[in-house]
Protein backbone atom coordinates (compact mmCIF):
# COMPACT_ATOMS: atom_id res chain seq x y z
CA UNK A 1 0.00 0.00 0.00
CA UNK A 2 1.24 3.44 -0.86
CA UNK A 3 0.59 6.64 1.05
CA UNK A 4 1.01 9.89 -0.86
CA UNK A 5 0.83 13.20 0.95
CA UNK A 6 0.40 16.75 -0.11
CA UNK A 7 2.94 19.26 1.24
CA UNK A 8 1.90 21.32 4.26
CA UNK A 9 2.21 24.85 2.91
CA UNK A 10 -1.19 24.91 1.27
CA UNK A 11 -2.92 23.96 4.48
CA UNK A 12 -1.49 26.83 6.47
CA UNK A 13 -4.46 28.87 5.32
CA UNK A 14 -6.58 26.86 7.73
CA UNK A 15 -4.69 28.26 10.67
CA UNK A 16 -7.15 29.72 13.15
CA UNK A 17 -7.45 30.41 16.85
CA UNK A 18 -5.45 33.63 17.21
CA UNK A 19 -6.88 36.24 19.48
CA UNK A 20 -5.00 39.50 19.24
CA UNK A 21 -6.72 40.97 22.31
CA UNK A 22 -4.95 38.59 24.69
CA UNK A 23 -1.24 38.29 25.43
CA UNK A 24 -0.31 34.79 24.36
CA UNK A 25 1.02 32.35 26.93
CA UNK A 26 3.21 30.69 24.31
CA UNK A 27 4.57 32.37 21.20
CA UNK A 28 6.56 30.51 18.59
CA UNK A 29 8.01 32.67 15.84
CA UNK A 30 9.91 31.46 12.80
CA UNK A 31 11.19 28.46 14.75
CA UNK A 32 13.72 26.33 12.94
CA UNK A 33 15.34 23.29 14.40
CA UNK A 34 17.34 20.39 13.10
CA UNK A 35 19.19 17.34 14.35
CA UNK A 36 22.31 17.17 12.21
CA UNK A 37 21.06 17.49 8.66
CA UNK A 38 17.53 16.39 9.47
CA UNK A 39 15.26 19.40 9.57
CA UNK A 40 12.57 19.09 12.24
CA UNK A 41 10.90 22.46 11.74
CA UNK A 42 11.44 25.31 9.37
CA UNK A 43 9.74 28.62 10.04
CA UNK A 44 7.23 27.25 12.54
CA UNK A 45 4.80 29.85 13.87
CA UNK A 46 1.93 29.64 16.32
CA UNK A 47 0.59 31.19 19.50
CA UNK A 48 -1.35 29.81 22.42
CA UNK A 49 -3.75 32.23 24.12
CA UNK A 50 -4.44 32.00 27.86
CA UNK A 51 -7.27 29.90 29.21
CA UNK A 52 -7.31 27.45 26.32
CA UNK A 53 -6.53 23.78 26.02
CA UNK A 54 -4.36 22.99 23.03
CA UNK A 55 -3.43 19.53 21.86
CA UNK A 56 -0.30 19.11 19.77
CA UNK A 57 -0.84 16.06 17.63
CA UNK A 58 1.41 14.29 15.23
CA UNK A 59 2.98 10.99 14.43
CA UNK A 60 6.05 9.69 16.18
CA UNK A 61 9.17 11.60 15.21
CA UNK A 62 7.59 14.86 14.04
CA UNK A 63 9.17 16.75 16.91
CA UNK A 64 6.47 17.07 19.56
CA UNK A 65 8.83 16.35 22.46
CA UNK A 66 11.53 18.47 20.83
CA UNK A 67 9.09 21.39 20.78
CA UNK A 68 8.33 20.94 24.49
CA UNK A 69 12.07 20.78 25.20
CA UNK A 70 12.60 24.01 23.28
CA UNK A 71 9.69 25.69 25.04
CA UNK A 72 11.13 24.76 28.41
CA UNK A 73 14.66 25.81 27.46
CA UNK A 74 16.19 22.34 27.44
CA UNK A 75 17.11 22.77 23.79
CA UNK A 76 18.20 25.86 21.93
CA UNK A 77 16.58 26.15 18.52
CA UNK A 78 18.74 26.71 15.47
CA UNK A 79 16.74 29.85 14.66
CA UNK A 80 13.59 31.65 15.65
CA UNK A 81 12.06 32.67 18.95
CA UNK A 82 9.96 30.90 21.55
CA UNK A 83 8.45 32.91 24.36
CA UNK A 84 6.56 31.65 27.37
CA UNK A 85 4.76 34.28 29.45
CA UNK A 86 6.66 36.82 27.34
CA UNK A 87 10.09 35.49 28.33
CA UNK A 88 12.60 33.80 26.05
CA UNK A 89 12.12 30.10 26.53
CA UNK A 90 15.85 29.39 26.90
CA UNK A 91 16.12 32.00 29.62
CA UNK A 92 13.00 31.53 31.72
CA UNK A 93 13.12 33.23 35.09
CA UNK A 94 12.37 31.32 38.28
CA UNK A 95 9.16 33.34 38.58
CA UNK A 96 8.04 32.10 35.17
CA UNK A 97 8.95 28.50 35.99
CA UNK A 98 6.79 28.73 39.13
CA UNK A 99 3.84 29.34 36.79
CA UNK A 100 4.55 26.30 34.63
CA UNK A 101 3.64 22.73 35.50
CA UNK A 102 5.68 20.43 33.32
CA UNK A 103 5.01 16.76 32.72
CA UNK A 104 8.03 15.12 31.14
CA UNK A 105 7.59 12.32 28.64
CA UNK A 106 7.30 8.95 30.39
CA UNK A 107 5.93 10.52 33.62
CA UNK A 108 9.46 11.22 34.76
CA UNK A 109 9.85 11.50 38.51
CA UNK A 110 12.32 10.86 41.29
CA UNK A 111 11.45 7.22 41.67
CA UNK A 112 13.70 6.62 44.64
CA UNK A 113 11.31 8.70 46.74
CA UNK A 114 8.03 7.67 48.30
CA UNK A 115 4.63 9.33 47.81
CA UNK A 116 5.14 11.36 50.98
CA UNK A 117 8.79 12.26 50.36
CA UNK A 118 8.27 13.58 46.86
CA UNK A 119 5.46 15.86 48.04
CA UNK A 120 7.72 17.23 50.75
CA UNK A 121 10.48 17.75 48.21
CA UNK A 122 8.40 19.80 45.77
CA UNK A 123 6.27 21.78 48.23
CA UNK A 124 8.81 24.46 49.29
CA UNK A 125 9.41 25.56 45.71
CA UNK A 126 5.87 26.66 44.95
CA UNK A 127 4.15 29.43 46.98
CA UNK A 128 0.66 28.29 45.99
CA UNK A 129 1.35 24.62 46.76
CA UNK A 130 -1.78 22.73 47.80
CA UNK A 131 -0.99 19.34 49.29
CA UNK A 132 -4.70 18.45 49.42
CA UNK A 133 -4.84 18.48 45.63
CA UNK A 134 -1.89 16.07 45.52
CA UNK A 135 -3.27 13.68 48.11
CA UNK A 136 -6.76 13.86 46.58
CA UNK A 137 -5.33 12.36 43.40
CA UNK A 138 -2.82 10.01 44.96
CA UNK A 139 -5.23 8.56 47.52
CA UNK A 140 -7.36 7.25 44.67
CA UNK A 141 -4.61 4.67 44.22
CA UNK A 142 -5.16 3.30 47.71
CA UNK A 143 -1.43 3.09 48.37
CA UNK A 144 0.41 3.72 51.59
CA UNK A 145 2.10 7.14 51.61
CA UNK A 146 5.44 5.41 52.21
CA UNK A 147 5.06 3.46 48.96
CA UNK A 148 8.06 4.05 46.71
CA UNK A 149 7.39 5.47 43.26
CA UNK A 150 9.77 2.95 41.67
CA UNK A 151 7.43 0.17 42.83
CA UNK A 152 4.42 1.67 41.08
CA UNK A 153 2.90 0.86 37.70
CA UNK A 154 3.11 3.43 34.93
CA UNK A 155 -0.53 4.36 35.52
CA UNK A 156 -0.03 4.87 39.24
CA UNK A 157 3.09 6.93 38.57
CA UNK A 158 1.11 9.15 36.19
CA UNK A 159 -1.32 9.97 39.03
CA UNK A 160 1.54 10.92 41.34
CA UNK A 161 3.17 13.13 38.72
CA UNK A 162 -0.13 14.77 37.78
CA UNK A 163 -0.84 15.34 41.46
CA UNK A 164 2.51 17.08 41.87
CA UNK A 165 1.88 19.29 38.87
CA UNK A 166 -1.63 20.23 39.98
CA UNK A 167 -0.53 20.93 43.55
CA UNK A 168 1.76 23.65 42.13
CA UNK A 169 -1.40 25.33 40.80
CA UNK A 170 0.35 26.42 37.64
CA UNK A 171 -1.12 28.80 35.10
CA UNK A 172 0.33 26.78 32.24
CA UNK A 173 0.40 23.01 32.12
CA UNK A 174 2.76 21.47 29.59
CA UNK A 175 2.06 17.77 29.30
CA UNK A 176 4.42 15.86 27.08
CA UNK A 177 2.80 12.66 25.85
CA UNK A 178 0.76 12.09 29.00
CA UNK A 179 -0.81 8.97 27.44
CA UNK A 180 2.42 7.03 26.97
CA UNK A 181 2.31 3.70 28.79
CA UNK A 182 -1.22 4.25 30.11
CA UNK A 183 -4.08 1.84 29.53
CA UNK A 184 -7.51 3.18 28.59
CA UNK A 185 -8.60 3.34 32.24
CA UNK A 186 -5.68 5.41 33.44
CA UNK A 187 -5.92 7.65 30.35
CA UNK A 188 -9.55 8.32 31.22
CA UNK A 189 -8.66 8.92 34.88
CA UNK A 190 -5.88 11.33 33.88
CA UNK A 191 -8.20 13.38 31.69
CA UNK A 192 -11.04 13.33 34.23
CA UNK A 193 -8.66 14.63 36.90
CA UNK A 194 -7.48 17.30 34.50
CA UNK A 195 -11.05 18.36 33.70
CA UNK A 196 -11.90 18.59 37.39
CA UNK A 197 -8.79 20.66 38.04
CA UNK A 198 -9.35 22.98 35.09
CA UNK A 199 -12.99 23.56 35.99
CA UNK A 200 -11.95 25.05 39.34
CA UNK A 201 -9.88 27.80 37.75
CA UNK A 202 -10.96 28.80 34.27
CA UNK A 203 -7.88 30.74 33.23
CA UNK A 204 -5.38 27.90 33.15
CA UNK A 205 -3.75 27.08 29.85
CA UNK A 206 -2.91 23.55 28.79
CA UNK A 207 -0.57 22.55 26.00
CA UNK A 208 -0.34 18.81 25.64
CA UNK A 209 1.13 16.44 23.15
CA UNK A 210 -0.30 13.08 22.30
CA UNK A 211 -0.72 10.64 19.51
CA UNK A 212 -4.03 9.31 20.86
CA UNK A 213 -6.46 11.56 19.08
CA UNK A 214 -9.60 9.91 20.48
CA UNK A 215 -8.75 11.29 23.92
CA UNK A 216 -8.65 14.82 22.57
CA UNK A 217 -12.31 14.76 21.59
CA UNK A 218 -14.37 16.72 24.15
CA UNK A 219 -11.18 17.78 25.94
CA UNK A 220 -9.16 20.22 23.89
CA UNK A 221 -10.35 23.54 22.53
CA UNK A 222 -7.96 23.48 19.61
CA UNK A 223 -5.59 21.02 18.05
CA UNK A 224 -2.34 21.65 16.28
CA UNK A 225 -1.41 19.02 13.76
CA UNK A 226 2.34 18.93 13.40
CA UNK A 227 3.89 17.27 10.39
CA UNK A 228 7.40 16.29 9.43
CA UNK A 229 9.29 19.37 8.36
CA UNK A 230 7.12 21.59 10.54
CA UNK A 231 3.86 21.74 8.56
CA UNK A 232 1.17 22.99 10.86
CA UNK A 233 -2.60 23.07 11.01
CA UNK A 234 -4.35 24.73 13.92
CA UNK A 235 -8.05 24.08 14.15
CA UNK A 236 -10.82 22.86 16.41
CA UNK A 237 -11.56 19.17 16.35
CA UNK A 238 -15.18 19.85 15.39
CA UNK A 239 -14.05 21.94 12.45
CA UNK A 240 -11.57 19.27 11.47
CA UNK A 241 -14.08 16.45 11.79
CA UNK A 242 -16.69 18.31 9.79
CA UNK A 243 -14.34 19.67 7.17
CA UNK A 244 -11.94 16.84 6.47
CA UNK A 245 -13.22 14.19 4.09
CA UNK A 246 -12.25 10.93 2.52
CA UNK A 247 -13.30 10.05 -1.02
CA UNK A 248 -12.85 6.57 -2.37
CA UNK A 249 -12.28 5.59 -5.98
CA UNK A 250 -12.41 1.93 -7.00
CA UNK A 251 -9.50 0.69 -9.06
CA UNK A 252 -10.40 -0.94 -12.37
CA UNK A 253 -8.88 -1.71 -15.76
CA UNK A 254 -9.55 1.82 -17.05
CA UNK A 255 -7.89 3.73 -14.22
CA UNK A 256 -5.34 1.16 -13.14
CA UNK A 257 -2.40 3.10 -14.49
CA UNK A 258 -3.29 6.24 -12.53
CA UNK A 259 -0.44 7.29 -10.21
CA UNK A 260 1.61 4.35 -11.41
CA UNK A 261 4.77 6.31 -12.07
CA UNK A 262 4.23 9.07 -9.55
CA UNK A 263 4.97 9.25 -5.90
CA UNK A 264 2.96 12.42 -5.29
CA UNK A 265 -0.17 14.03 -6.54
CA UNK A 266 0.66 17.64 -7.26
CA UNK A 267 -2.73 19.06 -6.53
CA UNK A 268 -3.17 21.36 -3.54
CA UNK A 269 -6.72 20.15 -2.93
CA UNK A 270 -5.64 16.64 -2.03
CA UNK A 271 -3.94 16.38 1.32
CA UNK A 272 -3.11 12.72 1.25
CA UNK A 273 -3.71 9.59 -0.78
CA UNK A 274 -3.76 6.03 0.45
CA UNK A 275 -3.34 3.45 -2.27
CA UNK A 276 -4.88 0.06 -1.54
CA UNK A 277 -5.14 -3.03 -3.74
CA UNK A 278 -8.74 -2.30 -4.83
CA UNK A 279 -9.19 1.40 -4.29
CA UNK A 280 -7.66 4.77 -3.59
CA UNK A 281 -8.66 6.94 -0.66
CA UNK A 282 -8.28 10.67 -1.24
CA UNK A 283 -8.19 12.87 1.87
CA UNK A 284 -9.11 16.50 1.48
CA UNK A 285 -10.87 19.53 2.89
CA UNK A 286 -12.51 20.18 -0.51
CA UNK A 287 -16.04 19.49 -1.73
CA UNK A 288 -16.75 16.40 -3.79
CA UNK A 289 -17.21 18.27 -7.09
CA UNK A 290 -13.90 20.07 -6.73
CA UNK A 291 -12.12 16.85 -5.92
CA UNK A 292 -13.69 15.13 -8.92
CA UNK A 293 -12.56 17.96 -11.22
CA UNK A 294 -9.11 17.93 -9.72
CA UNK A 295 -8.74 14.19 -10.17
CA UNK A 296 -9.99 14.35 -13.71
CA UNK A 297 -7.42 17.05 -14.41
CA UNK A 298 -4.80 14.68 -13.10
CA UNK A 299 -5.98 12.05 -15.57
CA UNK A 300 -8.17 9.83 -13.42
CA UNK A 301 -11.08 8.63 -15.55
CA UNK A 302 -14.45 8.95 -13.75
CA UNK A 303 -17.60 8.69 -15.86
CA UNK A 304 -20.10 7.40 -13.36
CA UNK A 305 -21.15 9.80 -10.54
CA UNK A 306 -20.71 6.88 -8.12
CA UNK A 307 -17.06 6.47 -9.07
CA UNK A 308 -16.15 8.92 -6.31
CA UNK A 309 -17.77 8.02 -3.00
CA UNK A 310 -17.45 9.83 0.30
CA UNK A 311 -16.43 7.42 3.06
CA UNK A 312 -17.47 8.10 6.66
CA UNK A 313 -14.52 8.44 9.03
CA UNK A 314 -13.89 8.19 12.73
CA UNK A 315 -11.71 10.88 14.27
CA UNK A 316 -8.79 8.47 14.22
CA UNK A 317 -9.38 7.67 10.54
CA UNK A 318 -9.34 11.38 9.80
CA UNK A 319 -6.18 11.91 11.84
CA UNK A 320 -4.36 9.11 10.05
CA UNK A 321 -5.76 10.33 6.74
CA UNK A 322 -4.35 13.76 7.50
CA UNK A 323 -0.95 12.80 8.82
CA UNK A 324 -0.41 9.63 6.77
CA UNK A 325 0.25 6.16 8.02
CA UNK A 326 4.02 6.28 7.92
Amino acid sequence: MLSIKQGPAFFKKYVTGKDSTMTPVIEVEHLTHQYGKQIIYEDLNFTIPPGKIYGLLGKNGVGKTTLIKILMGFLRPAAGKCRVFGEDSHNLSSAARTRIGLLFEGHLSYEFMSIKQIEKFYAPFYPAWDRDIYYHLVDKLGLDHDHLIKNMSCGQRSQVVLGLIMAQQPELLLLDDYSIGLDAGYRRLFLDDMREFLNKEMNRTVFLTSHVIQDMEDFVDEVIFLERGGGLLTTSLTKFKNGFRCYRVRRNKKNHSFLKNQDRLFNPLIKNIETHADYWDFFTFAEKNKVRDALREQGLAMNDPDDLKEVPMTLEDAFIGYTGRY
Binding site: F74, S94, R97, I100, L102, F104, L108, S109, Y110, Y126
Partner: peptide, 18 residues
Amino acid sequence: LPEMWGERLRLSLHLPIS
Protein backbone atom coordinates in the same frame (compact mmCIF):
# COMPACT_ATOMS: atom_id res chain seq x y z
CA LEU B 1 23.61 8.44 37.97
CA PRO B 2 19.98 8.57 39.16
CA GLU B 3 19.83 12.13 37.81
CA MET B 4 21.21 11.22 34.42
CA TRP B 5 19.12 8.06 34.04
CA GLY B 6 16.28 9.27 31.83
CA GLU B 7 17.72 12.78 32.24
CA ARG B 8 15.88 13.22 35.54
CA LEU B 9 18.08 16.20 36.31
CA ARG B 10 15.60 18.10 34.12
CA LEU B 11 13.09 17.71 36.96
CA SER B 12 15.33 19.69 39.28
CA LEU B 13 16.42 22.12 36.60
CA HIS B 14 12.77 23.04 36.00
CA LEU B 15 12.36 24.01 39.65
CA PRO B 16 12.08 27.76 40.27
CA ILE B 17 15.63 28.16 41.51
CA SER B 18 18.66 29.37 39.59
